[in-house]
């Protein structure tokens, strides 16, 4: 069954190694949870692409269904769902997130 929103998401997460679905954008996050993930990715120094779900109701609902995950933000690395704000924060604090990105061959500023 064809679903244009799912097709768009598949394309996003395939063409962008680090893809963040969030509220607002990296410059102006519109939610504290989204802001925290932007801050973590920025601190790690990995390039990332964002999509603002507030600008697109179909995407806002679609990403929740696509990921089987009811909340925003959502982080994808190399096409794989990593998690939302809690998981990204935990993985950052433990060093797992930087390790994952490095393992996937992505540029990170320094090993944590």
């Amino acid at each position: 069954m064809s679903n244009p929103t799912f097709d768009r998401i598949t394309s996003d997460i395939t063409s962008n190694p680090v893809m963040l679905y969030m509220k607002g954008n990296a410059m102006f996050p519109q939610c504290g949870f989204s802001a925290r993930v932007v801050q973590i990715l920025t601190h790690i120094g990995v390039p990332f692409q964002t999509a603002n779900v507030l600008e697109d109701p179909a995407l806002r609902d679609g990403i929740k269904a696509f990921s089987n995950w009811p909340t925003i933000p959502q982080l994808y690395v190399k096409g794989e769902f990593v998690g939302g704000c809690d998981i990204v924060t935990e993985m950052y604090q433990s060093g797992e997130l930087t390790a994952l990105l490095a393992e996937k061959g992505l540029p990170v500023e320094a090993a944590a």
Binding site: N68, W69, P70, F81, V82, G83, G84, D86, I87, E90, M91
Partner: peptide
């Protein structure tokens, strides 16, 4: 894993 635990709660 973390994602599975959260999905179970969701």
């Amino acid at each position: 894993g973390r994602v599975d635990r959260s999905r179970a709660v969701h």
